[in-house]
């Protein structure tokens, strides 16, 4: 299974290589979705954990024992309607129809239909689409 989590590092832990131990000690693969860590300062990191449910649960327990704050995250697409010109470039890659041009030539974003595949994010030439990770 896959589980997305956000880790918040306390000030004294950012230098400890705890994340590297997930695959070594717990058989959990991970990919880093987002990371903001400044040495010696508070930091956070979003991870996708891949492995079996028990291993993932144990690895999260380990991270908490190490003093990290761990929470599940949800992602959603944020659309900046102010900057959008309704050019339509993003609709070329949105296979679910969440982004579409309506009869008045406006862009509409239907978050109910969005599966957060993120195809549209880099495609918007005006950089009005982004992914928001929320804990």
């Amino acid at each position: 299974m896959k589980r997305k989590v956000k880790l918040i590092f306390p000030t004294d832990r950012t230098q400890k290589p705890v994340v590297a131990r997930l695959s070594r000690d717990f058989n959990v693969d991970f990919s880093i979705l987002n990371a903001q860590i400044t040495n010696g300062m508070h930091g956070d990191m979003s991870l996708e954990l891949i492995g079996n449910a028990g291993d993932i649960a144990r690895s999260i327990e380990f991270l908490r024992d190490e003093g990290l704050h761990v929470s599940d995250i949800s992602r959603h697409i944020v659309w900046d309607a102010q900057k959008c010109t309704a050019c339509g470039c993003c609709t070329a890659v949105c296979s679910t129809g969440a982004l579409s041009i309506n009869e008045n030539a406006e862009l509409t974003f239907d978050s109910e239909r969005c599966v957060v595949c993120e195809q549209c994010v880099g495609v918007c030439p005006l950089n009005t689409l982004s992914v928001n990770y929320e804990a």
Binding site: T85, A86, C87, G88, C89, T91, A92, S100, I101, N104, A105, E106, L107
Partner: peptide, 21 residues
């Protein structure tokens, strides 16, 4: 219209320039 036939199947079309503007 949002779809055209291409090679015998219906395919999505997308504009790149803004009709709204």
């Amino acid at each position: 219209s949002g779809k055209i036939e291409l090679n015998g199947r219906m395919v999505n079309t997308a504009p790149l320039s803004s009709l709204l503007f």
